[in-house]
Design a protein around this nucleic acid. Structure first.
Lengths: 225, 225
DNA sequence: ATCGTTGTCAACGCTAACGTTGACGCCAGC
DNA sequence: GCTGGCGTCAACGTTAGCGTTGACAACGAT
């Protein structure tokens, strides 16, 4: 609110986007992402971010208005991109099976490409943000993006029923299982260590599509209780 | 450390476990669980807990030494119980398929029985606790429990390869997919709303065992990249 | 009746984080 | 060489949480 001193200068510098200014700003965003990923939003302080860059906390305010804004800058692009990609896949031609596979691999690849930005977002439960210190308006936007991702996935699952490529008795639960499997990667996936996102995505798709049951059995105690 | 005043009295009251004392303490633990679940550990303050109980923050210290201890009390029993249950299932007789199903349903049932205690634990990433304010020794214990759960699951998956009931090309990834699907429930499952944990567990097991692919197809672009 | 225990709470000191201010050294362009 | 913006940083005021202290009112046991 107080457009005083540093606030003015930041706004100005941002407007006439100086050459190296944007670059330094990106360094700060990257450092912020790492800190947020390590400690979570609430436990992170701008002091941590400054230390990681070997600079002073106050210097950050020349580039960023607040911890909240930094969080937004960290997540904004990555999340939007993932959601748009998902919607694109959902709207593609082709049977639902292959679109589901593509959605999973594409999402994993995006998680890798936007590492660790995406995981910062996944870690925070944007649904409970009203009781957190994250900016509320921003949180609503994020929740909305999450909803759109779910919608894209649901569309594929429903299409699968129609085109006969998928057999899904409980679509909403299926959605949560898929999202859970994919998003839980924030606890174990580190780009560069082990398989690539593409490999992992395909293997995950295999598992989710064909199941763990060895072929040549038809069992299934199954169903409700 | 400072065994002064209130600390002494708390220790004493705890030792000669007064009748209503334990009960009031449990109320506080329950309230703590709710607050932790709503806001996450870091964002929660003892002030929040006190307010939820309509009492004063300082009163809590008569029952609980610190926010850290409260967190431990909230998670301790639930997590231990889930892990022990998982190990029991893993050690049971029977083919791997049915044990895997049982592990999933049992876990979901425990999540329901220990709601919201278990979700408080799942929400926090105990692996990054060294950079959080949660007690480090305690965190290690929790990490160890998580490892034991994974171990139990891995045992079942391996057995499935031997007894021929499961076909799993990438066991470790399969483990992460299953755990992800199950644990992600902390974002969408509320006991009493919708299906029961037993129903959900069985449906999830169906999905993971048989996959989403409609039968009568054998496709699979499959595998690595 | 009185005394001690029990549960509570107002108040304190301390720490850490936030966002702001004002000024400093430095290099670029004139 | 002078001047002006640029990036930095020491220092400030403020807020919020922590854990502690000391006392008070209620009540049960003696």
């Amino acid at each position: 609110m107080a457009k005083s001193g540093i606030g003015r200068r930041r706004t100005a510098a941002l407007r006439d986007h100086g050459e190296g200014y944007a670059q330094r700003r990106n360094e700060i965003i990257a450092a912020g992402a790492q800190v947020f990923r390590d400690k979570g939003f609430e436990a992170s302080s701008l002091r941590d971010v400054a230390e990681r860059l070997g600079t002073d906390r106050a210097s950050l305010y020349y580039y960023v208005a607040s911890k909240n804004e930094l969080f937004q800058l960290v997540t904004q692009r990555a999340v939007t991109e993932v959601v748009v990609a998902a919607e694109t896949v959902a709207a593609q031609e082709g049977d639902a099976e292959s679109r589901l596979r593509t959605l999973i691999t594409t999402t994993m690849e995006k998680y890798e490409a936007h590492f660790p930005y995406m995981f910062v977002y996944i870690q925070e439960d944007m649904n409970r943000i009203h009781s957190s210190s994250i900016d509320e308006v921003w949180a609503r936007t994020m929740v909305e993006l999450g909803r759109r991702f779910e919608e894209a996935l649901m569309r594929i699952l429903h299409d699968g029923g129609r085109d006969g490529s998928l057999a899904i008795s409980h679509p909403h639960l299926a959605m949560n299982v898929i999202i859970g499997a994919v998003n839980w990667s924030h606890r174990w996936f580190t780009p560069g260590r082990g398989s690539t996102s593409k490999e992992l995505g395909n293997q995950m798709a295999d598992m989710l599509l064909t199941g763990f049951l060895a072929r040549g059995q038809q069992d299934s105690s199954s169903s409700t209780a």
